[in-house]
Design a protein around this nucleic acid. Structure first.
Lengths: 167, 167
DNA sequence: CACAATCAAGTTGTGCACAACTTAATGGCG
DNA sequence: CGCCATTAAGTTGTGCACAACTTGATTGTG
């Protein structure tokens, strides 16, 4: 290894008051560092929780959607997960290589490719049962807090999307 | 571990309340999707804000640290940013190729490499002045809300790190 | 009907992130 | 002193994410 795995030294002062416009730089730094770090920390926890199942975190998200919604065209999968074909195509190819999904071109619309869990893919669902609990426990948050956080983040994402469209 | 009182908690979620353990799966899905999506949305906004400067978001974070702290060895940079040499080495090589930093091996400790902004790198700082404001505005949040969010995320990251170490 | 615009997937190229490994310098301890 | 564990940085390989592009099917409009 090259650097400490979890020796987090968040560059954040103990109690920085939210204040004047001059604080923008510092606050911007804080929130972007914090979100970036949180996202990577989440990834790390999922990686460990999923490693025995042979799934990466994004692959797990794909399987979750397929388990809940059933077979979907790549397009819809991308809408659900906010991912484009440039990301999904190779990811799905790997899932197919692992025998977890099948891809079949739609007869109705030859452009569309339906992604469907295989038997093995469906069977894997049971083995993921302990994962959500592991994750929620790892957050150290109550269910109410998790729910609140998810809600805030969803709203934040909507604002950011809107702003990105204007840039 | 229970976290301190969920601060103001101004916005009550428009979605159903958190409930029993049976809700874990759904909540886990919500929060992991939400955090993943928020992180990517943030990246997208930064990407657009920084594109005329020729910086990626992680490169910008590196420059921010160097601007604030001055020349640092790769090791310390990695501690600040939670990144290891496997990520930093090629990133720094690109920054050096762009003429924004110089890397010089320490005479005192031949293992260590000091990263130092060049003139051009220091000059770039002014051009990034509008970025923090653009980002904070894109979030649609008040400074107090941003501060609160950053605090929560930092705590969350600490919990996740601790849990990851146990897995 | 023809044909241009649109659309779904896939491909290519760049960059980030991390695990596992290598290399070289350092420091500690007998 | 001599040797070995540790350390810093870099390298390699895998996978995700996205922009820009290609290919082939479909749709809409004259």
């Amino acid at each position: 290894m090259s650097t400490p795995p979890p020796p987090p030294t968040p560059p954040i002062p103990p109690t920085p008051p939210p204040g004047e416009p001059a604080e923008w730089l510092r606050l911007d730094r804080q929130v972007c560092f914090a979100l970036h770090a949180a996202s990577r920390a989440f990834d790390a926890v999922y990686r460990r929780a999923l490693r025995d199942l042979g799934l990466t975190y994004p692959q797990y998200l794909v399987m979750l959607v397929l388990w809940e919604d059933g077979p979907l065209p790549v397009k819809r999968l991308g809408e659900r997960l906010r991912l484009d074909s440039g990301t999904l195509s190779p990811l799905l190819k790997r899932l197919e290589g692992a025998g977890l999904v099948r891809r079949e071109r739609s007869a109705r619309d030859e452009r569309s490719v339906l992604v469907r869990p295989t038997e093995a893919g469906a069977a894997l669902r049971e083995r993921t049962a302990p994962v959500p609990r592991q994750i929620t426990e790892a957050t150290g948050l109550s269910l109410a807090e998790i729910h609140d956080l998810a809600t805030r983040l969803t709203r934040l994402t909507a604002s950011l999307d809107e702003a990105a469209a204007r840039l």
